[in-house]
């Protein structure tokens, strides 16, 4: 699992990356009440808006950590947005992206580096 400073995570299997937000981010957001995930076929560049996650209070953007074409958005979050709180680094994933440039994944933080980063916040 790789991480961004915006608290997204990426897991690559084959040439598909699954993307979600970290447990830290989910805790900071509070109770998630609505999630908007991208549709298959959408092309994103690293740093683009990928999804939106909303708590009772506010809406927050989820950014694409890497570039590629969306192959699937997590439709299950439509009926069960609370999954983002319950299993942020598992069933609460947002989207799967076909990896355009594997070097972008390599450039992300590993868990130890991400935890060091959290320690600075």
């Amino acid at each position: 699992m790789r991480f961004t400073k915006d608290h997204e995570w990426v897991v690559v299997e084959g040439d598909v990356a699954t993307i979600g937000i970290t447990a830290y981010a989910a805790e900071q957001l509070g109770d998630v009440v609505f999630v908007e995930v991208p549709e298959a076929g959408k092309s994103v560049k690293a740093g683009d808006n990928l999804a939106v996650v909303e708590s009772v209070k506010a809406a927050s953007d989820v950014y694409a950590p890497i570039s590629g074409e969306v192959v699937e958005g997590n439709a299950a979050l439509g009926d069960a947005p609370e999954t983002v709180n319950d299993q942020p680094e598992g069933l609460g994933w947002f989207a799967k992206i076909k990896v355009a440039n594997p070097a972008e994944v390599e450039a992300l933080m590993d868990r130890a580096a991400y935890e060091d980063f959290l320690g600075t916040l």
């Binding site: 509070g30 109770d31 009440v33 708590s55 009772v56 209070k57």
Partner: peptide, 12 residues
Amino acid sequence: PVQYKDGVLKEH
């Protein structure tokens, strides 16, 4: 305080 440990939803 915007929220306590329980969070907005449970507090509401």
